[in-house]
Every structure is written in C-alpha cells, then in structure tokens.
Write a protein that binds this DNA or RNA. Sequence first.
DNA 1: CTGAAAGCGCTTACAG
DNA 2: CTGAAAGCGCTTACAG
Lengths: 340, 340
Amino acid sequence: MNGSESTIYDIAAEAGVSITTVSRVLRNSGCVSAATRKKVEAAIARYNYHPSVIAQGMTSKKTYTLGMILPKLLNPNYAMIFTGANDEARRNGHLISLFPWSSISDEQPALSVANRRLDGLIVCVEYLSPDRNERLQITLKELRQYMPIVLIGCVPSYYDYPTITYPMAEIMRQAVSYLVGLGHEKIAFIGGTEADQDEQRRDVGYMEGLKEAQLPCIASYRAFCDGTAAAGEAALEGMLSSLLPSYWPTAVIALNDLVAMGCMAAARKRGLRLPEDLSVLGCDNLFCAPYLSPALTSVNTRQQELGAEAVKLLLSGEEKRVDAGWEFVIRDSCARFGQQ
Amino acid sequence: MNGSESTIYDIAAEAGVSITTVSRVLRNSGCVSAATRKKVEAAIARYNYHPSVIAQGMTSKKTYTLGMILPKLLNPNYAMIFTGANDEARRNGHLISLFPWSSISDEQPALSVANRRLDGLIVCVEYLSPDRNERLQITLKELRQYMPIVLIGCVPSYYDYPTITYPMAEIMRQAVSYLVGLGHEKIAFIGGTEADQDEQRRDVGYMEGLKEAQLPCIASYRAFCDGTAAAGEAALEGMLSSLLPSYWPTAVIALNDLVAMGCMAAARKRGLRLPEDLSVLGCDNLFCAPYLSPALTSVNTRQQELGAEAVKLLLSGEEKRVDAGWEFVIRDSCARFGQQ
DNA sequence: CTGAAAGCGCTTACAG
DNA sequence: CTGAAAGCGCTTACAG
C-alpha cells in the first residue's frame, strides 16, 4: 500500500482502536494489552505506515534536525567534520542540514535559520578577522535565542558557548620546535588571518616556538592567505620574490594542507628541491597528503571525532568547553636541514 | 524580544487583527489594506517573529527539505555534487539533508527516509554491482511511493527515473583514443565493479576504444577496486606483480583521481618514472589533481553543476534524462610513450 | 488498558 | 478588506 498517504487515523480505523492507542504502540509508551498491540502492529505493517516526524514535531516542539554552518564543504577538512557530525546525529535520530556561511554573515542572519526551528546549531569557526569576529558575535547572540549552539574551532575564550576546540597555538609551538630540532632556523609561517582575534591563534604559537628556540621573529617570514591552495602558492611566491635567495626560509608551516600544497608548487617553480631546500608542514592531514611528493607531514586533528563530539555536546545540553585530541603525522616533507 | 517563543497568535494580538490577516501579510496573499499591513509588519518586527516552517508544512504538506543519498562525502567528488545541490536548494528555499548510503541498503530502507516527509530525494548512484543493483531497484520503488526521486550517475536505461547522467562509456572510449594517440599500446584500466550492470559502464567504453585502435583487450590489464586510493594502489600493484616487466602497461586509466593517486604510488614503489614509464589518467578532477607530481590529467565532470541540475530537475517535476557536460583536463601525467 | 478532547502553529475555504 | 472555523497528523493530560 502507498505509505505516503496513510495517517494515524487510517491505522486506528484498520485496527479498530482510537488514535490514542495507535500513538501509544508507536511510542511504546503507556500500557497496551498484548492483543491490542498486535492488532495495531499488524495494521501498521499492512499500510506500511510511518508516522510523520513533522506532525510529531508539532506537539513535541522538536524537529529532530540540527543545523551546521561551515566555511566551505569543499575543503575535505570540513567534509570530515560534517561526516562525523552527520553520522553521530543519525545515531540519535537527528538529521543535519547544512547552512552556508553566508547565512550567518547576512543582513538577516537569523531569518533563514530560525524559521526552520532547528533543535540546535553547530557553527564551525575559522579565520576570525576582526570584523568577522564582531559580526559573528552578534549573529550568534541572536540565534542563541532560538536554539542551543555549539562551536567548533579556536574561538576566543570570551565566546561564551559550549565549544569543541583544539590547542592550535600549542600545536604550532610544537611544530616550530620540531623544525628547529631538524636544524631549521629560517622558519616561515603562512596563516589565515593577520589579525585573528584569538589568543589561541596559530601565529601566537609560532612566535612562542621561535622565542623558545631563541630565534628572531622576522616579519617577512609571516604571510597570510585565505586557506586555498592558490592563495598558499601566491603567499609563498610573494615571500620568495621579496627576499634575496640567501634569506629564503628553509621551512614553512602552512595553515592547512591546501596551503601546503600551494607552497610546494611555488617552491618547485622556483627550482627548490623538496624537502632538501624547503621543508613544508601542513595541517588537517587530508586524504591526499600521503600522495603528494614528497608525502606531506601534517597534523591530524581528528575531524570526524570533532564533528561527532560537537553533536554529542549539543544534544547533551552541557555547557563545557572540550579540548580535542590531535597528533603530528610525520611523513617526508620535513627534512633535516643541511643534510643532502 | 525572544523570537523563539512568538507565534502567529502573539502577532495577531499585538497588531489587533486576526491570525488570518497575519497569515495573509506573511504570505503576501489576498488583499490587506495598507494600514493593516503596516500594523502587522510592525508587530512582526517588534517580536522578531519568524513563522514556523514546520507548522506551515503541516498544512501545505511540504517540508521544504530534500534528501540526498551519496556513497560517501569524504570523496571530494561527492562533496562537490552535494555543494552544488545544496546551494541550488537554498536558492529555492529548500534544505538538504544527507542520508548515508546504508539507509538505502538497510533492511528497512524507507523507514528512516520516509518518515521525514521529504519533498524529494536525490540518489547518487555508483558502482552498481549486481546485488547492489537489485537492492537499489527495490528500495527506489518503495521510496518513490513517498516522494519524487532524481538519480545522478550512470544508471542503466531501464531505470525509469528522472536522471542526470554522463556518458562514461564515451569518456573512456575517448580516453583510450587519447592514450593511443600518445603512442600507447598497453593500456590498463582500473574500474569500480567488474560486473557493473550498466551498458554505459566505463569498461565498455574502454574496450570499445581498444577495438577502434585494433588493440587486443587483455584480461590482465583490467582490474577493479572500491574507488579508494589504497585500493587503487593495491590494484595496480597486483597487476604489476602478476606480469613480467616487459608486459607492464605503459598507461593506466583509473576509475577516479583517488585510484589514480594510488596507482602513482604503486608505480613509484616499483621504480617506474612518471609519466615516462607510466601514464596515468584520472577522473573527477579533484582539487589536488594539479598538485600531484606529475600533475594529474583528469576528467572534469562538473560536479557542482551536476548537483544543481539534479535539484532543478527534482523541483521541476520533469521526467527527463539529461546528459551532463564534461571535458578532459590535460596536465602532465600522460606522456607520449617512447619519448624520453 | 482505552478513548474523547484539546492543542501544537499554521493555512485555507467560506462568510460577511 | 477581514475574521471564525475547520483541518493538517500527531501527543498528552484527563476520564473512565
């Protein structure tokens, strides 16, 4: 039978009971005699009936759908986060709908999200430039009136939302330390936003690492880009062309693997050998990292877990800020400097 | 004011009109006097009111959400399709929820999808092994009772659904022809499923291309894998180790870029030079293709357009089957054979 | 254990 | 131009 047309009334009629009773066997709540339950179940099966979660939502005030806002899904980093979140959500009977970043930077941000009556919202925050930061805070405050919110990313601690975060400054500090251990002294850094508002931001850790190694922090070794491969390529190319070759960095820490890929391309075009002349360190450990030449050393930020954790946190209603795990994945793109 | 709590009743009360009138100004339908409209709009603004699309859906029988089923989002190919679809859906006021492939291969496939009362479903079909094909047909037939369905992919023509498809056999035929033009005679093929049910399947085109060039079709040059880089690596490695080096293929056509990446890794491990000793041709033109060494020649299947087209088709209700565009993207991974 | 009734927040004929 | 009423498909007190 055509399941799309049957309602709880059809089932009740078919089974010869009230809709209340049907509802009870559906939700396995209240007491229903074994005989009645059987009749109802038979009717449900016969009609191939599926209760409408829309109608259920009308009374329960729940939509069983979560929203997620991501900078962009085309960076596999976010696809991983989304996948982890989506899987976890399904396990809990929820769906996730993806909203574009623009829906949070719009004039009327809440409109498109709020009228969906989401059960919750996960916002993945990156590249917090000052104006972006300001806008985001306003929007989040508005959206918070409608639904619980969980943040993913390195957000400033004055953001008062449950958050899954990772210690990006610490990771960068250790990255510098790792490269110093390989004999590098001219270590460049390509970040996402120059004036990121976060005390946990990457370049803070980068500078800390430099300081620990008693290395100078040189402005021309720092560059910023929008996180794409093309931007990474342009950023490193710009750096190289502004420097005499003897000052060229021997290692570069990239914002993410895309930028790292771009850096490799720029280096190659300049005739640099990888990794002998330039070590490159990425972040996110994308699927293609092991297949680049040389295989890219990167940071596994366990994105799928991150996404799953965010959903758990959102559904739990807890207010905590949790630190996600991470690890370096050493491959071939960072070499001891001076060794041929 | 807290928008999450206001309903059409609050607005009506605030504006001193009936909810019918509020509904009318909301939907811009019927005639409302300018004065009344103004009062209502003021009340809406004051309460920061957003009508519930859930409640609207109760009467309109629409949820304004579409479902999408993908093999896996972690292959950027699908992320591109999803992104194109999601953007197009939003432009039309719809949301897309992603369902895992398992929800269609489950015992109770319809259950999880049907009770969501989706306005439509897009299913991205790949790697149709015989049992998968059979299962899929049953599931689609069931789901079709509940909602319109659009397919993306190379599905057999006996699938009677609106479909966005691409001429994969033709693409592969031209790929062979391209490699033959470069002087290759030993051309391997790594596909997705040996017994794919589609007359449009890739290996059909591969064999056609071989025939056109009057080249023999050698079984040991055909392999199949599940579409991951690791599987591609294993597939080519298996092929090489089963063949005397003098019989090794000089070119390989891979199912997709992931498999191509795996092939490159396998070749490198065997000491083959790329592309001099082995040309590799991928498919999907992933973002990383230009950054591999050598930069991977691939096929741009315009995935975002594909996704957008699927949404348009679904929303239009048309029954047609449309052929998507595509193009080769020539880079450096395919070289003239014999030329050093 | 079972059912009649009210209610969730809207829209849509139907009257006026 | 405006409003009272019924209905969308459920759930949940409240009675029995």
